[in-house]
Write a protein that binds this DNA or RNA. Sequence first.
DNA 1: CAGTGGTCTAGACCACAAG
DNA 2: TTGTGGTCTAGACCACTGG
Lengths: 228, 228
Amino acid sequence: MIKDSIKEKIASGMWEFRKPIPSEAELCRIFDVSPGTVKRALQELVNEGYLYRRQGIGSFVARPNFENSLYRFFRYDVGKDKSRPVPRSKVLISEVIEAPEDVCKHLMIEKGSLVVHIRRVRLFDEIPLVYEDLYLPHELFEGMEKKDISEKLLYPIYEQEFKVLVVSADEYLNAATANEEQAQYLGIGECSPLIEITRIARTFGEEPVEYRRSFGRGDRFRYHVRIR
Amino acid sequence: MIKDSIKEKIASGMWEFRKPIPSEAELCRIFDVSPGTVKRALQELVNEGYLYRRQGIGSFVARPNFENSLYRFFRYDVGKDKSRPVPRSKVLISEVIEAPEDVCKHLMIEKGSLVVHIRRVRLFDEIPLVYEDLYLPHELFEGMEKKDISEKLLYPIYEQEFKVLVVSADEYLNAATANEEQAQYLGIGECSPLIEITRIARTFGEEPVEYRRSFGRGDRFRYHVRIR
DNA sequence: CAGTGGTCTAGACCACAAG
DNA sequence: TTGTGGTCTAGACCACTGG
């Protein structure tokens, strides 16, 4: 199955993001298969989100867009212009601590390891929508706790300053109700509905590099499933 | 695009469920295209959930499995045997009423039309997990309010007794908190987290035939998204 | 056995982008 | 104009199913 060979090369980071992978004709030669087979394999990888292709230009390794994740989950229809500004953050905690047990488990690190812990509130158009805790392995993110992240997205920082590229993630949604602190920071009543989103973000080889628990305002949350 | 022609025949109900559609070779003749094209079209329809195929037997029109929907959303890991019994229902209300405004909108019926309204609690292994309201156009479901549905699934009843076949649906998830009645029936505290699932179920031609608002216990809810 | 789908061959022809 | 992907051709060969 040449599809799996291609997928491995993508997963291993052998082909760079935003640069074209070998053309169909070259892949035919490389793997010694017919054009139809290469076309089919590439199309399937597009469907699975690993590639995107542009007629006349080439095929490229796709990157997951995590900001879309938030926008997928939350109705963010305040204001009608389509521009999506970087959400601001209000940092409540930024520290290095010994990892709690559940964090160790999800990040697959030794008990007692150090992690960077960040707690923040994310504001969209100045409206607080999400309260979240993040945990990063200290080994990979030494110094992260000193960065100013109030106006920035995290994943570009991971990539540029710590050479950690997030390529996939698992998210789990739960229902919850706001505790006192969450209610206060999100400007809602205690016991208001919240959506809890737990994310384990991974780099190449499925290695977990971030564990995140986000609590979003339930009145702004919406998720759509088409059954068919 | 022969794929769209095939999709239309499926959506129109021209080919029956569980009976094979014409074979690849026949489709080649019918549409006057080459085998490869037919194979590709059929494979894409499988990916989109319209068909399933069995080597050596044929290609069949798929039906959405709605029970899977609930089981997808709720952790139902009480007991370890994999058998999934039909959930029991405790019917609280079963009546014919004038449709409230939002129901008219979602069912796309005239203001003032009659609908069958059913309110019930669904029990899984005797544990109440879901509290829900259903609205059905009275025109299509005359007499539905008199049926005993406590031990049965609804969609087979729609199909067998009312000749209404549900073929697709849209579901919207929201976070909510339990009101007094919901809390009582679900055996949880008031203000406990709930997941609200709004479903619009459709028959052929996208015609809405059921509007349903379900409230599931938040502590049993879980949804998983893989980002990539 | 005949008939089905599953995978692959070895291209042709077109639309589109960049130089 | 050259090179790219998008769609389709016209099958071959195999594995599997049912009678």
